[in-house]
Amino acid sequence: MPITTSSYNPPFLFKNGHFSTIYAGIWRKIADFDQKRERIELADGDFIDLDWSFSKTPTQKVVILIHGLEGNAQRAYIVGSAQQLNRNGYDVCAINLRTCSGESNRLYRSYHSGATEDLDAVIQHILANKSHVAIFIKGFSLGGNLTLKYLGEDRAIPKEVKAGMAVSVPCSLYSSCKELLKSKNIPYAIRFKKNLVEKLKQKQKLFPEKISDADIKKVITLKDFDDIYTSRAHGFKDALDYYEQCSCLQFLPEINTPALILNARNDSFLGPECFPVKEAEQNDNLFLEISKYGGHVGYYGSKNITYNEKRVIKFFEEVH
């Protein structure tokens, strides 16, 4: 599809990518929003916790929301999106990826950018146990990569899956990794590393034979974490092999379900390869909107409703 022109033009302060990112990640709050938790058991003996919220009017449409790295279903960008979708006639199933619901998962493995088997398990659960006949997917950052990889993989996409949207997507994981290692992103990298190392220590308590103190001390950067844990726990040779196999970029040409990518030029997490212009131009089902502003999962909007929360409803209504 031709590249979609973006109309996003925030107030002056929010034209700064870092300010937009930090505001959305730390300061934005969504009050008085109720979710109902459901735990589903997975075929490998593990579990995933889902946080549901519902339209005030009966509906057979559901949106699956997928958070980003070290997020969860209570983050403002998830809750805010769920709230707006509920107000516009959609039920919402917000996934807490493995280890992200407040409780460690049971296995040595965890979640990662390419674990589409878990997204598929949630979709199959909805099809088997719920009354929804139209399923939509919206992923943020890592969750956006999962969304697009799922839609473009060599699998039979259920006919009930109608469309997807991915926000602030690291379409090339290696390109994004290189950006995160730059000095401009040190504060974010430190925060991610702190959370990931803490979870690695929790894994060590459960699997002391697989994670040593020396391993933990070697984690200086996010790439180190992927070399030492992510790749080993999920069957990849090393971090670079993980990035190569799991980046959604290679799967974009095969997407046959309408999908929208919304990425900002001033997103400090995204490298040049994360803006797949050629792939969008050559695929009638792939829509790409590159906004000048927005930061990383920012997109500030008036009345505490972000641009991406409005955009997803417009897109889903247009294609379904």
Rank of each mutant, 00 (worst) to 15 (best):
S113I: 00
P158L: 03
S176Y: 03
K205F: 10
L180R: 03
N195C: 11
K203R: 15
Y174L: 12
S110L: 11
S168A: 13
S113K: 01
K205D: 11
L180P: 02
S175Y: 08
V161N: 04
L148F: 10
F140A: 02
G164R: 04
S113W: 06
I186N: 11
K178R: 14
N145W: 06
N129C: 04
Y108F: 15
H112Y: 15
S141T: 02
K149P: 02
K178T: 14
K184Q: 13
S172I: 08
G143Y: 03
C171Y: 09
Q202T: 13
Y174M: 13
F140V: 05
K201P: 08
K199W: 07
F140Y: 15
E179A: 11
Y188W: 05
I126L: 15
K138H: 10
L119A: 03
T116E: 01
S110V: 12
S172H: 11
G164Y: 03
E117Y: 11
H125Q: 06
A156D: 13
T147L: 06
D120Q: 12
G144T: 02
I123F: 04
K199R: 15
G144P: 00
G139E: 01
T116M: 03
G143L: 04
G164C: 04
A163R: 00
Y108C: 10
N145F: 05
K203H: 14
L180A: 05
L107N: 14
L148V: 08
K149E: 03
A163C: 05
L206W: 09
I135P: 01
D118A: 02
L107C: 09
N185V: 08
L146V: 12
A121Y: 03
A166L: 07
L119C: 01
G152T: 08
V122P: 01
V167L: 01
K149C: 05
S131V: 11
K178P: 03
S183N: 11
K194F: 12
A189W: 05
L181K: 14
S168E: 00
P170F: 08
E160C: 05
N195D: 11
I126Q: 00
L151E: 02
S113G: 10
I135C: 02
P187L: 09
V122S: 04
L196S: 07
F136S: 01
N195H: 14
R191A: 15
Q124E: 14
E153H: 12
A156E: 14
I126F: 01
S141H: 06
F140W: 02
K205I: 12
A189K: 07
S183P: 06
K201S: 12
K149D: 06
L151W: 02
V169E: 01
K138P: 00
A121T: 06
Y174F: 11
K203A: 12
F140R: 00
E117M: 07
V161H: 06
K199P: 01
E160Y: 05
V133I: 11
E160T: 13
K203E: 04
R109A: 14
N145L: 06
L181F: 08
K149L: 08
K178H: 09
R109E: 11
A163G: 03
K199H: 13
K194V: 09
L107I: 11
S183K: 15
E179Y: 08
C171E: 03
P158S: 07
R109N: 14
K193D: 06
L181G: 11
F207W: 10
